[in-house]
């Protein structure tokens, strides 16, 4: 399986040559395919075929069932036309865009300080960022409830400051998009920071010093030296976060269900309303949206010079 020859024969064997090289090459060619087939088949059976069934069911809809008159029947176009669906799609995109924007700003700022205004413990902080990436997302929702929730710590402090006139001066977390936004901001910012820190570590610090010695103020250095170098990483991290927030289930479902996004609605359709056709239709919409973003992400990642390891988790 391991190809020791680093490249295939670039030019075909000369007319006088024997058939040897060609045959050997063909053998190696088919060996590579032979080795690739089992994992592909495995994933195809476990994942691609089920995914195909989802698309199929979304398109076919569910026919009325004479044995069960209460069964919900839906077709793809029903689901698409439903104003409820439209609101949820709009919510999903909006939340993803706002969260990503917040993550980009905060992630860039924090990464900038870690990388270029170093302080003792900066390495430990960047370690912490790595560990953070492996935590489950709902953990954030659980804990910000204690902090900013209706009866949370911040509310108590605020209400004691206002002299107890309002019970809940800060009422944005439960059942509101702001709680989801804050949780997504916290959870996904490290996903932006990781590729940025990698990109920053590859930046020649001499450039910054030369720029400063030429009289550029920090703002100009950031805009004209750091930002152009960081742009690919920023794009890569941003589009990854855009995709992940669009697909996020844990944070939204833990917050409370008034503000719905596609993944939560899919779960709701399938598990509570047993409306599989509707769930499949929503799933197709969700997959198309996030695949489009993922394709963009892969293109950007491929362009990112040397930053290949800054992929999803690195």
């Amino acid at each position: 399986m391991s190809a020791v020859t680093e490249l295939p024969p670039a030019t075909p064997t000369a007319p006088g040559g024997r058939s040897g090289p060609a045959a050997a090459n063909k053998a190696r060619f088919s060996t590579a395919w032979l080795w690739s087939t089992p994992p592909i088949l495995l994933l195809a059976a476990a994942f691609l075929y089920p995914l195909y069934l989802v698309v199929k069911q979304a398109i076919e809809g569910s026919p009325p069932d004479p044995a069960n008159p209460f069964k919900v029947t839906t077709s793809f176009s029903d689901t698409l036309k439903d104003p409820g669906t439209r609101t949820v799609v709009k919510n999903t995109i909006e939340m993803a865009v706002y969260s990503t924007a917040g993550c980009l700003v905060l992630g860039f700022l924090l990464a900038l300080i870690i990388a270029f205004v170093p302080f003792p413990g900066a390495r430990a902080v960047s370690r912490f960022v790595d560990v953070f990436l492996s935590f489950p997302s709902f953990l954030i929702t659980v804990s910000i409830m204690f902090l900013y929730g209706r009866v949370g710590m911040v509310n108590h402090i605020a209400s004691s400051l206002t002299g107890g006139k309002h019970d809940t001066p800060i009422d944005f977390i439960e059942y509101s998009p702001w709680g989801i936004w804050l949780a997504e901001l916290i959870y996904f910012t490290p996903f932006v920071m990781r590729p940025l820190l990698t990109a920053f570590s590859q930046l020649d610090s001499g450039q910054l010093e030369v720029a400063a010695s030429l009289g550029a103020r920090p703002g100009r250095v950031i805009r004209q030296v750091i930002l152009p170098e960081a742009l690919p990483a920023l794009f890569a991290g941003g589009s990854l976060v855009l995709m992940l927030t669009m697909n996020e289930y844990g944070i939204v479902s833990f917050t409370g269900a008034k503000y719905q996004t596609l993944p939560v609605l899919i779960e709701n359709f399938a598990k509570e309303q047993t409306n599989y056709a509707g769930a499949c239709a929503l799933a197709v919409i969700n997959v198309v949206l996030s695949l489009a973003l993922f394709a963009g992400y892969r293109v950007l990642l491929a362009r990112m010079s040397g930053g290949r390891r800054a992929a999803v988790h690195a």
């Binding site: 020791v4 020859t5 295939p8 024969p9 030019t11 075909p12 064997t13 000369a14």
Partner: peptide, 9 residues
């Protein structure tokens, strides 16, 4: 050594 394959010869 065999790490590149001649096109001819």
């Amino acid at each position: 050594a065999g790490f590149v394959r001649p096109a001819s010869g």
